[in-house]
């Protein structure tokens, strides 16, 4: 283990480490803590410039009710879910198949197709922006949840394929061969042999894609507008323009926007970290 385990260090060093941990954490998360605290402040605190001291009163209920009652933030959150969930299902579903095809079958162009997915995953969004917007408009689904979700599914399929293909490649190939010898059809092999083994990969990818899509801002700006369709990231930006200097509301809004992926992260932490590292560091 590196560095040397702290248990083996001298008592003062051990004590120092135990103090350093929480102190470092507080400094690291200071911006977030300040936001959390500010989301509880009163208008009066904000007006008198009490941003960093202890709040004179706690207004959690008031501030959070205020943002839900006076702004469409609830709608924005709902939109985010309506974009994110179909994208997770779509991209993970499609990539189970593409990943399976690229990992199990040997055919001409296999590696080229695989590299196509990988490379596409890294292109700058801007080079896709104008044509994708045009295409979406011509399908008549500009400014709809479906329009945004369809693009996300397509784009995320690149990353997911990279991930799935590497995952399946690492599975014992003998399983597939044994099934073939028994005369099991390819589709059944996919469904009954490989898919059950992919559960950890599916879980890991789902959490990861959920976070990516939830936090997407650029495509939300390009493909949607207005509170009917915009997800929370774009919505928060718009609300920020309306809540000028009302930092207690901006903070409360930020906390609300950050909540779902944070909860997701804590519930599925193991899968999340597996996803970040497993698909990539092979």
């Amino acid at each position: 283990m590196f560095p040397r385990p702290i248990e083996k260090a001298s008592p003062p060093a051990k004590a120092l480490y135990k103090i350093a941990l929480p102190v470092a954490l507080i400094i690291w998360l200071l911006p977030l803590l300040a936001v959390a605290l500010t989301s509880l402040r009163s208008q009066a605190d904000i007006l008198t410039g009490n941003y960093w001291g202890w709040p004179t009163s706690f207004n959690m209920l008031e501030n959070y009710t205020a943002i839900f009652e006076n702004t469409p933030i609830g709608q924005y959150i709902l939109n985010s879910f309506r974009v994110t969930i179909p994208t997770v299902i779509g991209a993970v579903g499609l990539s189970c198949m593409t990943g399976f095809a690229l990992a199990v079958y040997k055919f001409k162009g296999n590696l080229i197709l695989f590299f196509l997915f990988v490379a596409g995953n890294f292109v700058p969004f801007q080079i896709l922006m104008v044509p994708v917007r045009d295409f979406t408009v011509s399908l008549g689904i500009y400014n709809t949840i479906s329009g945004l979700a369809l693009f996300h599914i397509a784009f995320q399929t690149g990353f997911c394929t990279l991930f799935m293909r590497n995952f399946i490649k690492a599975l014992p190939f003998e399983l597939v061969e044994a099934a073939r010898v028994e005369g099991v059809s390819e589709i059944r092999i996919f469904w009954y042999v490989v898919l059950p083994l992919m559960k950890p990969a599916i879980a890991a990818l789902s959490v990861l894609i959920f976070t990516f899509i939830w936090n997407d801002y650029f495509w939300a700006m390009v493909l949607t507008q207005g509170a009917d369709t915009q997800p929370i990231t774009a919505g928060l930006n718009s609300l920020n323009g309306q809540w000028v200097s009302s930092w207690h509301l901006v903070s409360a809004g930020s906390i609300v926007a950050a909540m779902p992926p944070v909860i997701m992260f804590f519930l599925m932490q193991r899968h999340f970290i597996a996803g970040l590292t497993l698909g990539a560091v092979k």
Binding site: R133, T136, V137, Y142, N143, Q225, G226, N237, G241, Q242
Partner: peptide, 22 residues
């Protein structure tokens, strides 16, 4: 009436977009 309220500065980039697309 369905009323979409945009923030004042953001509207300037949105208008051309929605006039052409939706």
């Amino acid at each position: 009436v369905t009323w979409n309220l945009f923030d004042h500065e953001g509207y300037k980039t949105s208008i051309r977009n929605f006039l052409t697309a939706d």
